[in-house]
Design a binder for these strands. Structure first.
Lengths: 108, 108
DNA sequence: TCACTAAGGTTTACTTAGTTG
DNA sequence: CAACTAAGTAAACCTTAGTGA
């Protein structure tokens, strides 16, 4: 069949498979009714329909990824977002500080 | 009036004002019909309606921000995303490399 | 069990037409 | 000109029911 057409679908599948969950199970964990979880999650992953932000937020939580990860089209930036989400608070602050510094000396 | 209720609305307003554009002008630049641009952009910014990813992608371009910026709920991460988007390619790669390294020595 | 889909009912977004500052 | 909104139309999503690997 066809490959993924949407960014959300691509990111969703990557993170879901990484978490070792089925489409239906993930949907149920995110609070979707058990009778429609399979269809809805599949529609999201295949790019047939776009999830609203509320359900996306709950899906993101269950997959341990920042919500922005699922919307980013740039693979490198998506990777950066993913890594940031996995860092402890101290390293998050450090990374942000480094980014600010890199940005600063770019303008000079 | 009332404050913003949605994340998208909050990020949208910040970036739009920073760019010095009116709601209507931004909508037109993003390709929305001139007769509905004002209403639609206002509905997005006030959180009345949620924009689809396609139009959001075009809005993000005009505001010079990665699309993920508009969906991120964490202010620090949103800031990191914003900075990343403004870096040149060399610094983008450097920042990503640093992130990977920070992540690596966290697990040890 | 898991991935996936068509079709129709339901919900939401989009357009129109306007008000207010 | 800029921000904003109600109401109706149009479009998208969600549910149901089901197929096939």
């Amino acid at each position: 069949m066809t490959s993924n057409i949407s960014i959300i679908g691509k990111r969703l599948k990557e993170a879901r498979v990484h978490a070792g969950l089925s489409q239906e199970r993930l949907g149920i964990l995110a609070g979707i009714d058990e009778f429609s979880a399979s269809a809805r999650m599949n529609q999201y992953e295949r790019g047939k329909h776009e999830p609203g932000m509320e359900i996306m937020k709950r899906i993101a939580e269950k997959l341990h990824r920042p919500i922005s990860y699922f919307y980013e089209v740039d693979d490198d930036l998506a990777h950066l977002i993913e890594i940031y989400g996995g860092l402890d608070q101290q390293r998050k602050e450090k990374l942000l500080a480094i980014a600010v510094e890199l940005h600063g000396n770019q303008s000079e």
